[in-house]
Write a protein that binds this DNA or RNA. Structure first.
Lengths: 346, 346
DNA sequence: GTGAAAGCGCTAACAT
DNA sequence: ATGTTAGCGCTTTCAC
């Protein structure tokens, strides 16, 4: 139907056109030592004249591919988009190109996707909230420079960037307590695996909630609905909490999407927010700031997390022996219209 | 700090371990002709014993990389996530791995990203709502099998999958007219480029709006605010429309996110929806279905678009000479709570 | 400073 | 049916 494109311009074409060796072209390409300014100019001119573009895959067979792989568990979570913005912004000046591996929920899919990235010889990996076993992550990091985002705990093999989820949960509890609330409930993402209980953000948020409640002398008021970080999970969790004999006056949802489900359940129960019950959550995604919803939520500066992750990754590609670093960012609370003084509820 | 991973297992290791030639291993890998069942078994056993995984980049230097590249203009648009789901679902059974190129708004960034995918020798490309010139798309498609999603017009070089945006706009107008509305305004994404006026969905929706209004004898009521498909664009557009001497009784926003901005502007003007004014939009994203918003919106089966795109792409990889196909899907209208009979507004 | 030549892991002609 | 060999486009010794 259509004539195929002409053969690709290669390093050989450039070398011939510039009357030099392929080695010289390669050196110019990599800004490597051993090329005189005169040669550099000659080669560069030939490159532009021929419209040469290096073949990343072929380069990878010996050197680098200039490709960074980013794995995200879920495309629909807008917070991840912020992280990605930070990564691409930080990498914008460099020669690195970012490619994403989409939607890998579950350990098996995650393993497949990570393997796929390694098989495509990416120069570095950013794993966002991975669920794989720690040993597996260490193994991956030994194979290719890796930064893990959004998972607590340190490793000798990979750098980490996390938000201080315990502090974030405390911000919410402090805020609600200062509004006079005592019966503050939490909707968590159910977790059984022991390592994940220590490392996953959801578990840290639940722990932060507990700790903060205890710090305020409210240990008897601790009340947790254990569902999942989804819209339905929020709906279900809120229904459970609203059915309690002593209904909570405030609900702390572990994520914005959970809060949305909770808001629906509250409305269905004929209650108003924040009149009858306050709702706060975590992530401060675009949903939270949207006017009609206007959710009080913990902000995690995802963009900054992405910037840090990219910086750490490039550093590690440069020096694989450097000791691993753990970056922890402090969250802030954005108070909006879903939380109010408890008096209003009585 | 950490000992590097051992050298990768290659086809040579497998061949030696199975006491056969590398060719034999390659044949087994590709299910190619010329390998006896006995040899096949022997090689396969060696592969699993050694934990062999083919090096995609190296394969690509001669044959395929088994990688499909998907370009999306915007990660935050949830509709694109549906398309991606369809693509990955359809490709789930095959050996192809999907990689995404993130956020490339603007022709220049788009060109860079597409080049990057070609330089990484992807086997096929899915371009979602690209803004590049038609000639450029044709050139890309001559280089690598390509399917274009969400852009009207046919090409001899690439297959297309689109939603019938003209029909979708007509669904909205028909619905509003049936509710008694006559002063139905539209917020469009401003477009000047001639080709894009014919090919981009936003332009098609505006055209569908005009055509439908005319079909209903309402050509004198045609009223368009020309802003952009963003939250702010919706806000601005709605403010313009609300300031008209004869305020519209219904607004058809070109996208859900536009409708959200419009809803805010309507609320700020002290008007209610759908009491004072009806609002309908396009995309039926998760935002539209969210309870408190509950937006009447046109549903484009994004998932099906992804499935079709992936199918067409694999077909084209198999046979590059096949004639190009154009798949057009029919939208449906999902009526929710932001549209009501016009009597209520008077 | 420059270039010839070997090889990265794999596929595809071409023997046998 | 099986193996030998020559590349794919690039980087990297290692001579000069």
């Amino acid at each position: 139907m259509v004539k195929p494109a002409p053969r690709r311009v290669t390093i050989v074409d450039v070398a011939r056109h510039a009357q030099v060796s392929t080695t010289a072209v390669s050196k110019v390409l990599r800004n490597a030592y051993g090329a005189s300014p005169a040669m550099r100019a000659k080669v560069q001119q030939a490159m532009t004249e021929l419209g040469y573009r290096p073949h990343a895959a072929a380069r990878g067979l010996r050197g680098q591919t200039y490709t960074i792989g980013v794995m995200l568990p879920e495309l629909r979570n807008l917070f991840f988009a912020d992280i990605l913005d930070g990564i691409t912004a930080q990498l914008g000046d460099t020669d690195y190109q970012v490619l994403l591996a989409p939607g890998c929920n579950g350990e098996k899919a995650e393993a497949r996707v990570i393997d796929a990235m390694i098989d495509r010889s990416m120069d570095g990996l950013v794993l966002i909230a991975p669920v794989s076993a720690r040993s597996r992550l260490n193994e991956v990091a030994r194979t290719v420079p890796t930064v893990v985002v959004g998972r607590h705990g340190s490793s000798p093999a990979y750098d980490t960037v996390t938000d201080d989820d315990i502090a974030g949960a405390a911000l919410v509890v402090d805020h609600l307590v200062s509004l006079g609330h005592r019966r503050i409930a939490h909707i968590e993402h159910h977790e059984t695996d022991r390592v994940r209980l220590a490392e996953m953000p959801n578990a840290q948020r639940a722990r932060g909630y507990r700790d903060a409640m205890i710090a305020h002398g409210l240990e008897d008021e601790i009340d947790i609905a254990s569902t999942s970080y989804t819209h339905d999970g929020g709906h279900l969790g809120a229904r459970q909490l609203l059915d309690r004999p002593r209904r909570p006056t405030a609900i702390f949802a572990g994520a914005d999407v959970v809060a949305l489900g909770a808001l629906e359940a509250v409305a269905e129960a004929g209650l108003t927010v924040p009149g009858d019950i306050s709702v706060a959550s975590y992530d401060n995604s675009a949903l939270a700031s949207f006017g009609p919803i206007s959710l009080t939520s913990v902000d995690q500066d995802g963009r900054q997390m992405g910037v840090d992750a990219a910086r750490l990754l490039v550093d590690r590609i440069t020096d694989r022996q450097r000791r691993t670093a753990q970056v922890t960012l402090s969250p802030t609370l954005v108070v909006r219209r879903t939380t109010a003084a408890v008096e209003a509820a009585q």
